[in-house]
């Protein structure tokens, strides 16, 4: 499956990596998302009542861990990471409000239309995520 992300996700992710308490996020994302089929990722909370393009919120690393928001377009075998936040620790939040859920949903649609996305790959040793903007590919 192709994995992409928005600028907003990249920004939130890089901010987390700067905090020692949240550095595990990179390994968590690699383990959960990479080398998987779409149907293996259909769990968590589906926010948009769509079977073909589910917008999903997923808890990673247990209750106190991270919350990931992503969209899957099943027919295109593509997944779009939209936002991430920790539940606890520095920058932690219990949840995001409905307006923000709607905003990042609209943002990803615009970014898909405009090809304003990063394609994600992992390094050979599966330790780091690489971001390549679609305009550079």
């Amino acid at each position: 499956m192709n994995i992409y992300c928005t600028q907003g996700f990249k920004f939130a992710f890089e901010k987390l990596l700067k905090k020692k308490a949240h550095r595990s996020i990179e390994a968590e994302i690699i383990e959960y998302f990479f080398n998987k089929e779409a149907n293996q990722l259909l769990s968590g909370v589906r926010l948009n009542n769509s079977s073909a393009e589910p917008y999903i919120k997923k808890r990673l690393e247990g209750s106190g861990g991270f919350r990931l928001y992503f969209l899957i377009i099943i027919k295109n075998d593509s997944l779009y990471l939209m936002f991430v936040h920790p539940k606890t620790g520095p920058g932690g939040a219990e949840n995001i409000d409905d307006n923000y859920k709607a905003k990042i949903y609209k943002d990803v649609l615009e970014d898909i239309k405009n090809h304003n996305l990063y394609k994600l790959t992992v390094s050979e040793k599966q330790r780091n995520i690489k971001f390549n903007h679609l305009s550079n590919i």
Partner: peptide
């Protein structure tokens, strides 16, 4: 909170509903 949003609040946000519609056309 999420379940309440999914079934009762987000479907009333026009922007959200429109995004779902447009995504289905991609």
């Amino acid at each position: 909170a999420d379940i309440e949003s999914i079934f009762f609040f987000l479907p009333k946000v026009p922007e959200f509903v429109e995004t779902t519609r447009q995504l289905s056309l991609i």
